[in-house]
Amino acid sequence: MNTPSSLSFEDLERVYALLAETIDGLGPEREALFLSKLTLVLAQALGDFETVTRAMDTARRDLD
């Protein structure tokens, strides 16, 4: 998944903290809806079906 356009480590950390805090702010009952919306928004911004499905495969691994 490390494409030429990947985030710098600093930015990855910032996204990590921002997401954690946003989820905390929303509360558990809204978090699944928020994360699903976020995925759609990111997919739309990415504009590439293949990359999105590959990302879904990566995220589906090692779930238990």
Binding site: N2, F9, Y16, L19, A20, D24, G25, P28, E31, T58
Partner: peptide
């Protein structure tokens, strides 16, 4: 320290099994 941080931490750990960039975290 919170649910949000736990979710992100667990996501990073799970991803790290296949994605070295996530292991950096």
């Amino acid at each position: 320290p919170s649910r949000g941080y736990r979710l992100l931490r667990d996501a990073a750990l799970s991803l790290a099994l296949s994605q070295p960039w996530a292991g950096e975290l």
